[in-house]
């Protein structure tokens, strides 16, 4: 059957990814123990990676769910972020960078609860120029949006989103960006824009937030992170590539 075949192909691609991680990146523990199991089931093909990773890396206890209550929702989120920011020749994609955990953790805090935003009513439909006008808070927008991704996936392909081929996942996501899905309480474009921007934020924010694993997001972009001074380099003609530094370096020991 076609669908099984594509599903296997994506599994193979995923295994390639996890060996990359287990080969040295800090994301190995996360990938081996959590993701391979969650996204693709606890199958034999992944066991080797899982054990290898567990043996070589200390467990990152930060990589657990703060916001999502159903692991299946988190897996849909993970697959979607990976399509928005995929692994490629430059380096890891959203999943290996820890972006899904970044988003989960953000949704549990002031970002997810819109603490510093005006959330008083009444709520009216807005023009395209008036911005966010839903009574839903961000965490609720993600709930509604993720459920709709799964619903659309089943309607269109009769398959769960996480089991779709990449191009099929893109088709679903594109419908959200284009506003072609019915959502309750929020426009699909608002949800997609939140998902898209949160994914990029997770890829490139300081690793203290749980994304940008091992500063690999920064490495791809050759962004050196947190240096205190470039006064002796600012006038140099050639591009200067530097080892990245994170804010952790600022904590006095």
């Amino acid at each position: 059957m076609t669908e099984k075949k594509t599903s296997k192909m994506s599994r193979r691609r995923f295994i390639k990814n996890s060996s990359y991680a287990a080969g040295g990146a800090i994301g190995g523990g996360f990938l081996g123990t959590v993701l391979s199991k969650n996204l693709f089931g606890n199958n034999n093909e992944n066991q080797g990676q899982k054990q290898g990773a567990t043996n070589n890396e200390s467990t990152n206890y930060n990589q657990a769910l703060m916001y999502f209550t159903r692991q299946s929702d988190f897996e849909i989120l993970s697959s979607a972020t990976e399509r928005i920011f995929p692994e490629d020749d430059n380096g890891p994609g959203a999943v290996k960078l820890g972006v899904p955990f970044f988003i989960d953790h953000q949704l549990a805090g002031s970002y997810g609860r819109n603490d510093r935003e005006y959330m008083r009513g009444p709520f009216y439909p807005a023009s395209d120029f008036q911005g966010y006008q839903t009574r839903l808070k961000r965490h609720e927008v993600f709930d509604v949006g993720i459920q709709a991704i799964e619903r659309e996936s089943k309607n269109q392909f009769d398959t769960s989103f996480v089991d779709l081929e990449g191009e099929q996942q893109d088709q679903i996501l594109q419908k959200f960006q284009d506003g072609e899905v019915d959502l309750k309480g929020v426009t699909p474009t608002t949800f997609f824009e939140l998902l898209r921007s949160a994914t990029i934020e997770g890829a490139y924010s300081d690793p203290l937030y749980g994304g940008n694993n091992n500063m690999e997001g920064w490495m791809m972009k050759e962004f050196p992170g947190n240096y205190m001074s470039y006064i002796n380099e600012i006038d140099k003609k050639d591009f200067i590539k530097k080892e990245p530094k994170a804010l952790r370096a600022h904590i006095a020991h």
Partner: peptide, 21 residues
């Protein structure tokens, strides 16, 4: 902005809505 924001509209004949973010 949870305490105070502005409202915005392009034209006088529109309903202004809060700048929520």
């Amino acid at each position: 902005l949870s305490r105070e924001t502005i409202t915005f509209r392009n034209h006088r004949d529109e309903r202004a809505l809060p700048m929520r973010q």
